[in-house]
Design a protein around this nucleic acid. Structure first.
Lengths: 242, 242
DNA sequence: CTCATTCGCGTACGTCGTACGAGAATAGAG
DNA sequence: CTCTATTCTCGTACGACGTACGCGAATGAG
């Protein structure tokens, strides 16, 4: 029995993952829990980034042996999935603006801003979302809320789901870029090296537009403002005909 | 001399990377080239996905020893950077619509469609772009073209750069999602499992909006159409006041 | 008690990125 | 030519990773 030669096609059965049945009333009692392990992994990712999340380090954090984790999640990819859904609980827990105001554009923008702050709080989320396979219960609860917001649009089901996916992808992309910018600016010499590089390119005569752009920077605007601007353009007119 | 305790803050000096000086006229002649190695890595990624790109497999493909690669790129992350810029050459090589038509919205949309087909041709690009650090020469040539398109907008330099970043992030996010959908649909039982899972959730009574959305799917629309729709909404009105 | 069942996890394997340094190739100096 | 400084190649090795395997401990059912 060899491995599937077509790489990357693996994945987890969402039914087995999320629709659990805690039936075993025999044998040794579990010493840990999926919750605790997931929370430890999230704490690790929050503190040291996604690449710090290794099975060994997560196990150490919960005080378990490494292989014990595999009783709660079949593999690491699944653990990542659990992490994503775990933090997604914050989206509906703190305050699911349970009442769509009727102005769905405003509601949708508010939701996007909520997602943005959520991702800024968990900077590993954009990267983790890129490989996400299926939505867990918390994600579904959040989706439910967004669908309720979209009700007045009269869009069909598939289009509403598409809007949700696009909105998440947009926020994820924006925050990812925002974080990269922030990281580059955090180290002064790094930012200086980048600036020197671009200046050198602009000075080579081959890039007049770049030179012009660098020469008229405009006043620096807060990331939040940029986000709001693009978001507004994306949301307004979302109900236009295909 | 220990490692920087603040993880993830590493990175490559763009000046050393892109502004090379081929000066050594002494010692052994290089047996390979950065170009050849990068091309081999790209071919590997195109054929088997990004996770197949390991130093060992790239080296095997060019017929070199593993450690020889490190004479051409200081580490794997840099090799990824080189790969991204390598394929970005296609964006301006095949046809840099060198003449902005004057209708910058149409031009921008055309550019986005070009990017989309580019990413579909190299499905690993969305993932690789997420960790990209600094633009190489081919990316800069493409940026130059987009800046030329944006000239009529009268936006300031920083805003134009922002538009470029946002547009790329948007396309990347969309294609990433598109590819995930396609992968899920590729295997019939996988798609069926996903559908069964969502149906089960919709039937639990806790998710009325989801149930409604699944009940009125609408006619399935081509990914290209969805892309065009969202793109249109993003591009139109891009010159609105901050 | 006995025993089937379930969980904890030590050990081990294969793969990864890459540090190190010995040996091969080359160009100038004498 | 030889000698030497320089530059490249790459075998070996190390630590860290994900995880398969299987033994021993804990537990509930009979």
């Amino acid at each position: 029995m060899t491995r599937d030669p077509d790489a990357g096609a693996a994945g987890i059965d969402p039914e087995r993952l999320w629709l659990s049945d805690p039936q075993p009333r025999r044998g040794r009692r579990p010493a840990y829990s999926r919750e605790a392990i997931t929370a430890a992994a999230v704490a690790l990712a929050d503190a040291e980034g996604l690449e710090a999340v290794t099975m060994r380090r997560v196990a150490a954090r919960v005080g378990a042996g490494v292989m014990s984790l595999y009783s709660y999640a079949p593999d690491k990819e699944t653990l990542l999935e659990l992490m994503v859904d775990h933090v997604s609980g914050e989206l509906t827990a703190t305050g699911p603006p349970t009442t769509p105001t009727g102005d769905w554009r405003a509601d949708l923008k508010a939701v996007a801003h909520l997602q943005r702050s959520h991702m800024l709080r968990h900077p590993w989320l954009p990267a983790a979302l890129a490989t996400r396979r299926s939505p867990g219960p918390n994600t579904l609860a959040f989706l439910e809320h967004v669908l309720a917001i979209l009700r007045p649009t009269g869009l069909d089901g598939a289009s509403k789901l598409e809007v949700f996916a696009q909105l998440t992808a947009f926020v994820s992309g924006h925050v990812g870029h925002e974080l990269a910018q922030a990281a580059a600016a955090a180290s002064a010499d790094r930012a200086a090296a980048e600036a020197r590089y671009l200046a050198a390119v602009a000075a080579d005569g081959q890039h007049p537009e770049l030179a012009a752009a660098l020469a008229s920077p405009g006043r620096p605007l807060a990331p939040e403002a940029t986000f709001g601007r693009f978001l507004g353009r994306l949301v307004d007119g979302l109900d236009a005909a295909p």
